[in-house]
């Protein structure tokens, strides 16, 4: 028996991968536990765009995530990512192009007619995908339950795979929080069919369509462990970025805001780490949906090998 602690994206992917190769698995998620930060994620599977600031390892390994999610959940949309910048930040768009690969220069309105007349050029990452993270996580949970995996808040009965995110700071001294803030709007005047990233001086700003005129707008990056509600500054900056992309966002209804803490190691790279008998899967930073399936695969290889050696 393996006891996966935590039902965020790291825990769900680990439990799924382990269960699929035949391990008996339970998922421990106590009632009072804080909601997983992954529920607030953009749900973008954008390994090449992340390469703008992430090391090559994320770009290389993260590519496998798209196929994994497409096999496991119903709502993966393979429509690529469009990156744009206001005319005066054109040099920043050139820098983005130099820092990344697998893209092509496009006229943004060829892909998204709603952007017509405002952006002369953009970068298109055709092989990237996105999904609704809340639906995807619910989907994984249902699949696990259908396989007989029990979710409960009691004491773990098996070997521990610790996917508690920031709550594992009690055992991981070098884990820190990077705060992220996001908004959800209902903007019926705006039609965008794929994630659009706007080059922003302080954080990667993106708008992800959620269907029926709803959009997720994220996400700030602040080096703090403060967990309170979204700040006025974050709302102003995110909305002003959205307004730059499309003036129709000015008439949108602000339907939700969220602030979460991304569990992060000093190099901002998610890892598998041994801690005696316990195995940690942590440090997802801003790469949870991209890297959780990849690390889960690594976990399966490690545990399969150990089990084989034990016999």
């Amino acid at each position: 028996m393996i006891s996966v602690l935590g039902a965020g994206v790291a825990g769900l992917c680990a439990a799924t991968a382990l269960s699929e190769v035949g391990f008996e698995v339970e998922v421990i998620a106590p009632d009072g536990a804080p909601p997983p930060a992954s529920l607030l994620a953009g749900g973008m599977l954008a390994p090449f765009c992340e390469g703008e600031s992430a090391p090559d390892l994320i770009v290389e390994r993260g590519q496998a995530a798209i196929a994994w999610w497409a096999e496991h959940v119903a709502n993966v949309e393979l429509r690529g990512t469009l990156v744009i910048a206001p005319p005066r930040d054109g040099a920043e768009l050139d820098r983005f192009a130099r820092a990344t690969r697998s893209h092509a220069w496009v006229r943004p309105d060829d892909l998204e007619p709603d952007l017509s007349g405002r952006f002369a050029r953009g970068l298109f990452f055709a092989s990237e995908a996105h999904m609704d993270p809340v639906a995807a996580m619910a989907n994984l949970r249902r699949r696990l339950e259908a396989r007989g995996v029990r979710f409960h808040g009691g004491a773990p009965k098996g070997r521990i795979v610790d996917c508690r995110g920031l709550a594992a700071r009690d055992r991981l001294q070098d884990l820190r929080a990077v705060r992220g803030e996001m908004l959800e709007v209902n903007a019926p005047e705006v039609t965008l069919t794929r994630p659009v990233r706007l080059i922003h001086p302080r954080f990667p700003c993106y708008i992800v369509p959620r269907g029926q005129g709803r959009y997720m707008i994220g996400a700030t990056m602040v080096e703090t462990a403060r967990s309170g509600p979204v700040t006025a500054r974050a709302v102003m900056e995110l909305l002003s970025a959205a307004y730059t992309v499309h003036p129709g966002f000015a008439e949108a209804e602000l339907i939700a805001t969220g602030a979460g803490l991304r569990p992060s190691f000093p190099d901002n790279i998610p890892v598998l780490r041994r801690d005696g008998e316990r195995i940690h899967v942590n440090g997802m930073y801003r790469h949870g949906f991209l890297m959780a399936p990849v690390i889960a695969g690594e976990l399966v290889r490690m545990m399969t090998k150990e089990t084989a050696n034990a016999h």
Binding site: R176, A177, V222, E223, T224, A225
Partner: peptide, 13 residues
């Protein structure tokens, strides 16, 4: 200004 009192982990680094 932004990080405030909660930014200890980064400041320690």
């Amino acid at each position: 200004r932004r990080e405030g009192a909660g930014g200890d982990a980064f400041r320690d680094i």
